[in-house]
Amino acid sequence: MGKTILVNADKCTGCKMCELVCSFHHAQTFKPSASRVKVKVNSREAIFTPQVCMNCEVCPPIEVCPVSAVSTDEETGVAVIDHAKCNLCRECIAACPYNAISFEAGGNEVIVCDRCGGDPECVKICFPEALVWAEAEEPSAV
């Protein structure tokens, strides 16, 4: 298995810079809803959790998609959407345990992290190192 994005929520300060650069990289605009990574905020306990595709061995969106539009990338293991097949039913959004699949406000397709082709923008911008690009086998970083 190659490198992947590892999340350490303990280090996240909740600044959401990852959302901004992600939306700019993919949609050339600054719009958090167009971001493939989302920071979940628990303001009562100040817990911030960046949520992104976690390469699950069993990917629930694949199971629920009625038109078999979701698959996993052989190389990176992340979920991939076949937009030609997708009928926008959004079952996958509900099924993903990490809220990694979403629908851009005003957009016309479901979106999911593509690891920016192996050089993720969110990791580069994450100063607290809550997001790191590392070998998936390193359990200590998770």
Binding site: T13, C15, K16, M17, A46, F127, P128
Partner: peptide
């Protein structure tokens, strides 16, 4: 100190979440 945080789009972490006695955050 529980966690350092900050505003939107800023990495300075000038805020902190404290858990004071008597469960006051």
């Amino acid at each position: 100190l529980v966690r350092e945080t900050g505003c939107y789009n800023c990495t300075v972490r000038c805020q902190a979440w404290l858990h004071l006695p008597e469960a006051t955050y």
